[in-house]
Amino acid sequence: MPEIDIKKQKILIVEDNPHFRTLIQSILQALGVENIEEARDGAEAMEVLRGYDADLAILDWKMDGVDGIECVRRIRNDTESPNRFLPIIMLTGYTEESLMNEARNAGVNDFLGKPISAKSLLTRIISVLDQEFSYVETETYFGPDRRRQQFPHQGNDRRKEQMNFVKLKVYERMESRVG
């Protein structure tokens, strides 16, 4: 893994579950990130972003109030959006293709499947930080260039979505191999 200093990144966590927020924040702090803000849903995220020049947002998909997809749409499309180019990682336990496409079409940069680990979170952050995203604007879409987006294989998490015990074992082997 490349040695990357993410200390100076301003990271916004948007998550309605306080336990997940604690988990993500604890991991980020342990990795050295000093400037973290939190929001409980998409509406609060937009409020926070007006006064917080975030470098990266980590959004949950399913939230009470304004959910992750709608929040991404607002960040990308609202005329008063503070930063339409904000890199966005979407946290999700949903891996159905149609839902992934919905998130892509809303303009996410990347996905991170739950449950997360320190390594999976760091890997995804580095992946987003390392990519030079081109953005595309059409009449119906604004966001990362989907033609060139290479979403990392969600293999681990996708399999977990469907796992039976045997698949769980396979997943563990894959994870240890990747890790």
Binding site: M1, E3, I4, D5, I27, K119
Partner: peptide, 24 residues
């Protein structure tokens, strides 16, 4: 973003930082 992402250096996220995070 990338201008703030330093590679290497004393604050870099290395295996030790990752282990600390796992310990957290």
């Amino acid at each position: 973003l990338k201008s703030k992402v330093k590679t290497g250096g004393p604050g870099a996220v290395d295996e030790a930082a990752l282990e600390r995070a796992e310990a957290v």
